[in-house]
Design a protein around this nucleic acid. Structure first.
Lengths: 157, 157
DNA sequence: GTCGATGCAAAGAATTTGCAGGACC
DNA sequence: GGTCCTGCAAATTCTTTGCATCGAC
């Protein structure tokens, strides 16, 4: 159920898909932008802008934080990335959006801040039903379950 | 389903409940703190810290924004208030948490930022089921449906 | 050659914190 | 009368933006 530290099977596919969509939308290619797209596509878990920079520096490449924000913004607008705000003053996190539309939701640990993901078809069905019943025209949705992760649960009782 | 601009039936009850819980938890009473609690209890919709200050000033009372944040923090810790982060750099919003445990979720308009609420028993049941299945020890949850509100839908097609 | 993209540094915005004075119990 | 609470202002973060320059197409 929870899928941590595991790569999505579609990771490689997402990177290529994203680069194609960016190009088709009239955006130019550049080393920094590619570094961001590749680093994001490589991860399954959500990453903050800062973590993305560290990720890229670890590869021996470099990118300014402003470029990361700008790129994430473009990716978000094109539906290629998903932004996640866990609140509590924590920075926004981003993850690649599966082009197939399949997605997951998040578990947030209130003690250590760890974020994990889970997916559930029944929950999706219930939300789709709801989306048709409300008076807003719904495009996306997000579900956050908050509590303590296994480590913090056993540590703090 | 959507409940806007409507007072919760439990509004008055919440204010009294909150003041009692605060006192029992060893917190002192003060005019600014009461103003925050009363203003929050009076509303059904979510409010930002800034809106809470305006709300209080409109009554002819006054309070510093730092006190509002500090009070909301205490209310949140005691489970008396619920924090809602809609992301996109928007400030956090708060609402009274119903002591009965009954709660609702939110619809966020991506065009105008309007936030509405809805409740759904089947969704709650599905989430409770999920909460028992994941490896985190879940305490709370939140669901956000994003899209365009009725006004923005008709305006923008 | 044009125009989008980049990096830096400054600007902005939300929230937190240090501190001195005031109020509650 | 001690301790918690308050307001102000400064400090912290996260994120955005202005601008000169660089590079893709």
């Amino acid at each position: 159920m929870a899928r941590n530290g595991r790569q999505t099977a579609a990771a490689k596919g997402w990177t290529e898909h994203a680069e194609r969509v960016l190009k088709d939308a009239g955006h130019r290619s550049s080393a920094p932008r590619s570094a961001v797209v590749e680093a994001l596509g490589r991860q399954d878990c959500v990453l903050t802008a800062r973590e993305l920079v560290e990720e890229i520096r670890a590869e021996g490449r470099d990118v300014g934080i402003a470029t990361v924000y700008r790129t994430l913004d473009v990716l978000d607008e094109l539906g290629l990335a998903q932004r996640l705000d866990v609140g509590e003053g924590a920075p926004a996190r981003y993850e690649p959006a599966d082009p197939s539309g399949e997605h997951h939701h998040h578990l947030v640990c209130g003690s250590c801040g760890r974020v994990s993901s889970f997916e559930d078809a029944r929950l999706e069905r219930e939300i789709d039903r709801l989306a048709r019943r409300v008076d807003y025209r719904i495009g996306t949705h997000e579900v956050i379950l908050r509590g303590d992760c296994p480590t913090c649960s056993s540590a703090a009782g």
